[in-house]
Write a protein that binds this DNA or RNA. Structure first.
Lengths: 274, 274
DNA sequence: TTGCTCCTCACGTCACGTGAGGTGGC
DNA sequence: TTGCTCCTCACGTCACGTGAGGTGGC
């Protein structure tokens, strides 16, 4: 016969745990001294303790374990328990992985933003835009109405999204109320969904400018960019693009002063030089 | 101003949850009627509620969330939180996957046993043994001492194991005390570890017999098998093998009456026929 | 006396959900 | 009066761990 301390050493279960299992009726001591209340376990209890510990390692609940050890003593009898438990854990793992993927996406996104902040000089830059496949929803109205559309788009596109959200602007001048634009998400392959059209933009030379601050102040950056077009004697080609490197995040709405938007205007035909 | 019920509708947080967040100081109502105790929330609280809900979806603890929303309002500021949380979840996922793999192994094992029980006739059968690579520990002593050796072997071999545990028996007659044998685990590739040697068994024709019952009764099945060798006028070649299809399980010790052991004795040179 | 082992009992964990019992205004 | 919304307070969840305060035998 072993005292609770000895039995704890043998089984690797803590004294507190053994007392708890006794209280729960899962693993009763062989006898209890009615003077002192001391619990005593005999060798036959060791295997039961081992079985319980093994099932706990597999994260079965104490209720399940109680049911299992009450009715069964062979693994072939508990395959259904194992299967059900397995399914439950698989569901949990899937949910956790989903969370992990969201966390990783946010972290990666922030790293990209940090990299942009470190390397950009916030000046007009000429560069090549790569070809890109976009899932788009074309809209008419105010630019500021794009919020919900972006939400729906992201939900439909899901994990097919492979870059920052963008907007295509089809008006040649600024329009407050009846603008013609499309909210877009770059995707790796075509997606079929209601209200979504696929647009394939070819590579293009473009003048770009990184705008830091609220969307309401984009106009200033557009002016700078257009001035540069004029200076170079070239014209912008529609649609122009806005790439939202940093805007309202997945968690915080964030500080608009820290929003980062890249305006990209493709270079159209050169004007005849005088 | 919204009542708690309206605010609950808007935010998707239950009334109970809103009261709890109030109590925890995480999301206080804008004002509380001191006559009725009614809580009222204004529109400005909606975004805070949304942030808290988003962070809860990512399974941050309320303590973490309290710290996050107290000090930050931009995702770039909480990358370290995200990273740490990500690591914690990754650890949990790994542990859960480990459990899943154990569960799957047990389930698969039981299915194999069921299949064997359904298809076997428990008669001597001649068949080809496939070539197999074994991680072995050679021993001398009693067969019944193999238990701990199997435990150690399994731990060293881990997930490289690709079949049932086996024993190789090198004695030509039954020995009680000073038997020469090796406990083995089939593996997919060679393993280097102390006390482990690799043995590559070639394919062989063999007579086999499936033995159901405790190991102590294996002798009877050996007798049946050897009688068949004699009847056919062939001799067995060493080492003979025992494959433990069902023995003490990972959870239960199980009922020895239901143990399943396959005895395999390779067919050696044919004796000259008279 | 000190140190050790054992005991019981109460409370904490985590983020709420359940339910009892009650109120105030339509 | 009934039904609705809101309130507080107590308790449950899950598998223990922590700690207080005490006992009995060496």
């Amino acid at each position: 016969m072993y005292s609770i301390g000895e039995f704890s050493q043998i089984t690797g279960l803590s004294i507190k745990t053994l007392r708890f299992y006794h209280e729960r009726g899962l693993l009763a001591p062989t006898c209890v001294d009615d003077q002192t209340g001391y619990r005593y376990y005999d060798a036959a209890k060791i295997d039961r303790a081992r079985v319980i510990a093994e099932l706990r390692k597999l994260e079965f609940s104490l209720d399940d374990i109680a049911a299992i050890v009450r009715d069964h003593d062979d693994e072939s009898d508990i395959v259904e328990y194992l299967r059900r438990h397995s399914r439950e854990i698989a569901v949990r793992v899937q949910a956790q992985k989903q969370i992990l993927s969201v966390l990783q996406t946010i972290i990666r996104h922030q790293e990209e933003i940090r990299h942009i902040m470190q390397t950009s000089h916030f000046e007009v830059t000429e560069k090549s835009l790569p070809a890109v496949l976009l899932a788009c929803r074309r809209m008419r109205g105010k630019y500021s109405d794009c919020g919900p559309a972006f939400g729906q788009l992201c939900r439909k596109v899901g994990w097919h999204m492979v870059g920052k959200p963008m907007m295509l602007l089809y008006d040649s001048e600024y329009k407050e109320d009846d603008a013609d634009f499309a909210v877009c998400a770059p995707v790796r392959k075509a997606i079929r969904a209601a209200d979504i059209e696929m647009i394939e933009l070819p590579t293009a030379r473009a003048l770009t400018l990184l705008h830091q601050g609220p969307y309401a102040e984009l106009g200033r950056s557009y002016a700078v960019l257009l001035a540069e077009f004029q200076r170079l004697g070239v014209t912008p080609a529609l649609p122009s693009r806005e790439v939202y490197h940093k805007g309202p995040g997945m968690i915080f709405r964030g500080n608009p002063q820290r929003y980062l938007t890249e305006i990209q205007m493709a270079i159209g035909e050169a004007e005849a030089k005088p």
